[in-house]
């Protein structure tokens, strides 16, 4: 590994100052499960690594009246072990439970997953589905960007050199809502998604009609995608196979998968359809109160 300097600020302003001072040659470190490997292979060669784990704002995990706040450095194990997340933001718990193995989850954060901006990052479609908002701090102040607009290309995102992702905020969950994240991987664990789908669904009181839906897709384009039309076409519809089939077709329209060692383009298109349907089915069941315990990989 190349030589670099290391700082571990405990105050947000200090971290931002260090970032600003380094003219783009610094990299923030949260769990390090992507960054350390990328430095080892030479993909990233920052001169300064800023360990932001000790900054309080980046470690919050709070569910309050205004929704859920997940600090950018909060490790996955805390997120998927949190009762509120499991209960109301289930897609996020689903994702955090399958990012890497247990050892990775001890360190990896959803903020890091977002900032790594891989097309297949597991937490991102879940956060898109839950309409997450990225809270970004910079020397000029704070701005907010929807998770769906955060990534701009493989490994690229909206962050300027002097900006830091502080937290991801999720709006409060309506009653009769449910969500799910699921991916297709060749093994049952320890794999990168061939396709990943997150969805959130809200039903009317009777549980028969979809009043809101949001779908995120992973590994089927240069960035994780918001399948906006697929979600919209569900709204106002009664729950039926035909309704879900419309969403499947709409989701397939926006994807542009590639063939690589994880799967062929054709396969990814097909699997996107299968998973959108399955994930919606589970999200709908959860909206009706059925917890739908899933066995990862199966």
């Amino acid at each position: 590994m190349h030589a670099f300097d290391y700082k571990s600020p405990e105050v947000l302003a200090e971290a931002l100052q260090q970032l600003a001072d380094s003219d783009g040659s610094a990299k923030p470190l949260a769990g390090g499960t992507d960054l350390i490997d990328q430095m080892r292979t030479g993909r990233h060669q920052p001169t300064l690594v800023i360990d932001i784990k000790k900054v309080a704002e980046l470690n919050v995990l709070e569910c309050a009246g205004d929704g859920l706040h997940v600090g950018a450095a909060t490790p996955c194990y805390r997120i998927c072990g949190d009762d509120n997340v499991q209960q109301d933001y289930t897609a996020l718990a689903d994702a955090c439970n399958i990012i890497g193995g247990v050892q990775i989850q001890s360190r990896a954060s959803v903020g890091g997953n977002l900032c790594n901006s891989g097309p297949a990052g597991d937490s991102i479609p879940a956060m898109i589905a839950l309409r997450g908002i990225c809270v970004i701090a910079g020397s000029a102040g704070t701005r907010e960007v929807p998770v769906a607009e955060f990534c701009t290309g493989p490994g690229q995102n909206v962050l300027a050199d002097n900006e830091l992702l502080v937290e991801i905020r999720f709006p409060p969950r309506p009653t009769a809502s449910g969500s799910h994240y699921r991916r297709m991987i060749p093994r049952n664990e320890m794999d990168i998604a061939v396709v990943g789908v997150g969805a959130s669904v809200t039903l009317n009181e009777a549980g028969t009609t979809i009043t809101d839906a949001c779908i995120g897709l992973g590994a089927v384009g240069p960035t994780p995608l918001l399948a906006a039309r697929a979600g919209e076409c569900l709204v106002g519809q009664t729950v039926s196979d035909a309704t879900l089939a419309n969403a499947v077709e709409a989701a397939k329209e926006i994807i542009s998968p590639i063939t690589d060692m994880r799967g062929t383009q054709e396969y990814r298109v097909h699997v996107t359809g299968v998973l959108v349907r399955r994930v919606l089915e589970t999200a709908i069941s959860r909206a009706t109160g059925d917890p739908c315990v899933v066995r990862p990989g199966h």
Binding site: R187, E189, M190
Partner: peptide, 14 residues
């Protein structure tokens, strides 16, 4: 795929 991530030997969960 020259890593244990993408050269997929079975895990105990498989």
């Amino acid at each position: 795929n020259p890593t244990f991530l993408d050269y997929r030997i079975p895990t105990c969960y498989d």
